[in-house]
Design a protein around this nucleic acid. Structure first.
Length: 938
RNA sequence: GCCCAUGUGGCGGAAUUGGUAGACGCAGCAGACUCAAAAUCUGCCAUUCGCAAGGGUGUGAAGGUUCGAUUCCUUUCGUGGGCACCA
């Protein structure tokens, strides 16, 4: 009887499906556990071997937790709105709904082959109207909310109306318009339109004008990714900034809670740091400077008010409104030239070129309020209008960028930190004693910050100010394939649809091109857009809308009355383990945290952080091959080796595989020589000759690891591996590659070893010649020891997500049992239970064949059936200690575990090897660490 | 430029709290079984000196702390990832 994995795996997968084995109930006496994968975007390319890495890890953990007696929620679904489907539709005319459905079917069949224990009855898909009905509904709840900074939470707009009626804005300054100020009486005088405009400046989802990348030639708005060097990636047309009406998520109101919430969750430090940097909270001060010959004031934001006497110049952003007002007539031409230059630069360029210093003097001067010094005001592209006040004070001795700026434009540098400043580079220290600093002289800089702030505030020229880097999140896209906004525009007022009108379904489209005036494709459908009650919003929600709350829908997926019943969310609570890649660090993970907090504030759920613990899976990279070709004059010649790549700048680089694939995308042959010989590869350019060596044609390929992608010809497909080796082998091999968190190159070479292991396991039960070899004999001490050591290690490794070492532990165990010729059911049965989360099919089959009462992969276990290790079996009375001389191991010595220092010293001094090294001398010291080692110091 | 991660044999990796570096697997080499192949089994497998016994060196590099460092500290180099020059 041999290990027929194909039959076994098909049998068990069918059985699980027919019996609904992994269907989970919201009603259970067992403790709950929620294990979640980041759901995939169902791309047309299907699943590659990188996808299942996280899914296998979460499946192992889910199965493990079930054996431990938990009621485990382990769902899967699809993030099925998105740009690729729309672009595909533009190219082929196929409706995104059709291709999406097809892609989902492909994903599902691929996932099924790997033997996951998902509860498919809870599957969600964000483009399903039954799902996005609730995305729209939650949008409306957020729209109907504002952030009360006094209570520190989201509240209904009706509460704000009451506040305005009684007090006006006095206690609740407007987050959207800082200049807004009115009394209760004034509020009541405003007309409806004015009131709605004001409310929009408070709402947590709001509409406002913002800059987008507009491409006139394509008639559409482009994402940053789609703009290269100021030109559209598609077609190379010019792209300009254009102000358009957009929807936003007022996530900045949650900045502090998003920061403090990080303290309550188990994310990796790296992940928390990324989020903190993104939020970018800084404590500083805003300060006003008078401007010579002007009644304008220059307001700057600084985190270092202690350096106020070191200010040698001011810089304002090119977009700053003061630029026009303060530029002197002498400088007008230069400034205009500079502004034209800046306009030609994309934001990407402005932000990425660090080396090049540009700027322009306005001719105006600000006055230092403390010493009356005149400070020149400059414009420079490195200052952005959107952050702080859009103006900074330049302190060259303390800030390197300011230092370089001053050097470049020959601005004299004031030194306020004495010998801490060497004139060669800035020193950003806070520990220097201040000089040349008026009332701050002699103070340490870090103490001077408070003193300076107090002074600024008492003089009434500024105040302490907390700033955040984070901006409000753009929430609308001029696209078709997304959730329509449940909003009607009437007389410039955004009127929300009634909940009863949801879902507002996406109308069927025949064409997907952009609408007029930069609007999305929906603007072309006048039947849908124009309603008696007003005009529909024609932009759609961004990709992250649906993914911001899907973890809640899984808890109660078929509820048609509510997005998720409170009893369901109270039962399941937080996601206990969330597994996915780091690419979502600052996008999805921040948005979903914010949505959760809003829903919590409004009383819809009982927890305000969605994910208790986050595990980041590493990327599996594929191997790509490149070759270089040198151009020499008019006729190109092939270089002899890729090593020349760095020594010659005029090399052309080619991706091997570009012409080496057949119509299905499969590599035709493994080596370029084979391809050339078979005519399967074309020379990259007609004039290229392959360099001959010893009369043979040859070329060197350079191997590089890259993210897997169909277009890179480096994709391996899980189906083929499951077909060839079986799902159990595939699962264990992906885990065996290395730590889940690490990114690693994909290589199928090692898969044979894992497959051999499973066959070896099988032979402990059945022999090809002898048939059944397992028996009911009583186990020996040695066999029990092997088993219990394995139980202990597997449990520890599984708990800490160290699945690669767990696989190796299984291998060691099977090797040892084979050496002991142990075929005893009493040993093997618990081993199968341990193995079942990792290799569920073979474990299930063997359990059935040896007659196990409760299957480890079954649904009928009512309590924990995970093997429990017996520490008594692992107790040893002595240990082989490594004995080192001056830290170098020289010999081993078996010593009783209860030996005392004296016992050990005596044993050591009697030992021949040690005697030789001591050479008659007495040791200085003998270090004996119980259960670890012995070190003799000479 | 800034932030984060990471560096161990031919390869993937192990060493969980400072205590025998290289577990486990791949690849390779030698052998057994076989008419042969596959499968399986046995042995070797960081490097260097040595017939051997036994030494020397070795976790990117250089220092340091320690009886003892892959692990802690300082400096430095390489690689990968992120970024919104954020004042």
């Amino acid at each position: 009887m041999e290990y027929d994995f194909k039959k076994i795996e098909a049998d068990w997968q069918n059985r699980w499906k027919e019996n609904n084995t992994y269907k989970v109930s919201n009603d259970s006496s067992k403790p709950k556990f929620y294990v979640l994968d980041m759901f995939p975007y169902p791309s047309g390319a299907g699943l590659h071997v990188g996808h299942p890495l996280g899914y296998i890890a979460s499946d192992i953990y889910s199965r493990y937790k079930r054996l431990k007696g938990f009621n485990v929620l382990h769902p899967m679904g699809y993030d099925s709105f998105g740009l690729p489907a729309e672009q595909y539709a533009l190219e082929t005319g196929q409706h995104p709904a059709v291709t999406t459905e097809k892609n989902i079917a492909t994903f599902r069949s691929q996932l099924d082959k790997i033997g996951f224990s998902y509860d498919w009855s809870r599957e969600v898909s964000t483009s399903d109207p039954a799902y996005y009905k609730w995305t729209q509904w939650i949008f409306l709840q957020i729209f109907d909310s504002w952030y009360n900074r006094i209570t520190g939470k989201a509240e209904r707009i009706s509460v704000l109306l009451e506040i305005f009626d009684n007090d006006g804005t006095v206690n609740h300054p407007c987050p959207g318009d800082k200049t807004l100020n009115f009394s209760a009486a004034e509020w009541n005088e405003f007309d409806e339109q004015k009131k709605q405009e004001i409310l929009m400046d408070y709402r947590l989802t709001f509409s406002s004008y913002g800059e987008v990348n507009w491409c006139e030639a394509l008639g559409t708005v482009l994402a940053n990714d789609e703009v290269v060097n100021g030109l559209s990636e598609r077609g190379g047309y010019p792209v300009e900034k254009k102000k358009m009406r957009q929807w936003y998520l007022r996530i900045t109101e949650y900045a502090d809670r998003l920061l403090s919430g990080l303290e309550t969750v188990e994310f990796s430090e790296a992940m928390k740091e990324m989020q903190r940097n993104w939020i970018g909270k800084s404590q500083g001060a805003e300060m006003d400077f008078a401007i010579t010959d002007s009644d304008q004031v220059l307001r700057v934001y600084t985190t270092r008010p202690d350096t106020i006497f070191g200010v040698d110049f001011m810089v304002v952003a090119p977009e700053h409104e003061l630029v026009e007002l303060i530029t002197t007539s002498e400088e007008k031409n230069a400034v205009e030239t500079y502004l034209t230059y800046v306009k030609s630069r994309s934001e990407r360029e402005r932000l990425s070129e660090v080396k090049q210093i540009t700027g322009c003097f306005t001719g105006a001067y600000a006055i230092n309020p403390f010493d009356g010094r005149q400070i020149p005001i400059w414009i420079a592209e490195y200052v952005l209008a959107g952050y702080g006040t859009g103006a900074i004070m330049g302190v060259p001795c303390g800030d390197q960028r300011d230092f370089l700026f001053a050097k470049y434009f020959n601005i004299p540098i004031t030194n306020i930190i004495g010998e801490y400043f060497n004139g060669e580079e800035a020193n950003p220290t806070k520990d220097a004693q201040l000089e040349n600093s008026g009332f701050l002289n002699g103070l340490l800089m870090k103490d001077a910050i408070t003193v300076a702030n107090d002074k600024i505030e008492s003089m009434g020229i500024g105040k302490r100010q907390v700033n955040y880097k984070m901006r409000d999140a753009g929430f609308s896209r001029q696209r078709y394939w997304g959730e329509p906004f449940p909003i009607l525009w009437t007389d410039g007022i955004a009127v929300p649809l009634d909940a009863a009108e949801l879902p507002l379904e996406l109308p069927h489209a025949e064409k997907y091109g952009p609408g007029p005036n930069g609007e999305g494709p929906l603007a072309n459908m006048s039947d849908w857009t124009n309603t008696p009650a007003g005009r529909r919003e024609t932009s759609t929600m961004p990709g992250y809308a649906g993914s911001s709350w899907y973890f809640l829908r899984y808890m109660d997926p078929h509820n048609s009355q509510n997005f998720c019943d409170r009893s369901a969310s109270d039962y399941w609570g937080q996601v206990d383990i969330y597994i996915g890649g780091t690419e979502h660090a600052v996008g999805h993970l921040l948005y979903s945290r914010m949505w959760t907090k809003v829903l919590y504030d409004l009383g819809f759920i009982g927890h305000d952080e969605p994910f208790k613990k986050l595990v980041n899976q590493g990327m599996i990279t594929g191997k790509s091959y490149f070759f270089n070709v040198a151009e020499s004059g008019n006729s190109a010649a092939v270089i002899s080796s890729y090593e020349k790549e760095t020594s010659n700048g005029s090399l052309l680089r080619f991706r091997y595989g570009h012409k080496c694939v057949d119509s299905t995308g499969k590599l035709l042959r493994k080596t370029l020589e084979e391809n050339v010989a078979a005519g399967g590869v074309e020379a990259p350019a007609a004039s290229i000759n392959w360099l001959a060596k010893d009369g043979e044609e040859y070329i060197y390929l350079k191997e590089e690891s890259e993210k897997m992608s169909k277009s890179k010809y480096n994709v391996d497909n899980p189906d083929e591996l499951c077909e060839k080796y079986g799902a159990d082998t595939f699962r264990m091999y992906e885990m065996f590659l290395g730590p889940v968190e690490a990114s690693k190159p994909w290589d199928t070479k090692g898969i044979e070893g894992v497959h051999r292991f499973l066959r070896k396991l099988w032979r402990l039960f059945f022999d090809e010649m002898k048939g059944k070899v397992w028996n009911d004999e009583a186990p020996t001490q040695a066999e029990l020891k092997v088993l219990h050591r394995t139980i202990k290690k597997i449990e520890e490794d599984t708990e800490r997500f160290s699945f690669n070492t767990a696989v190796s532990t299984f291998m060691i165990c099977v090797n040892e049992l084979a050496d002991l010729k142990c075929h005893k059911k009493q040993i093997l049965e618990p081993l199968l239970f341990l193995l079942s989360p990792y290799a569920p099919h073979i474990s299930a089959e063997l359990c059935k064949l040896i007659g196990v009462a409760v299957s480890p992969v079954g649904e009928d276990a009512t309590k924990s059936i995970y093997p429990v290790y017996d520490p008594a079996l692992l107790v040893e009375s002595s240990k082989d200690y490594p004995v080192s001389i001056n830290g170098k191991v020289r010999t081993n010595l078996n010593i009783a575990l209860d030996a005392t220092q004296q016992d050990v010293e005596q044993l050591i001094l009697e030992n021949e090897v040690i005697k030789k090294w001591l050479d008659g001398k007495a040791p200085k010291k003998i270090i004996y660490v119980k259960n670890k080692m012995v070190n003799v110091v000479i």
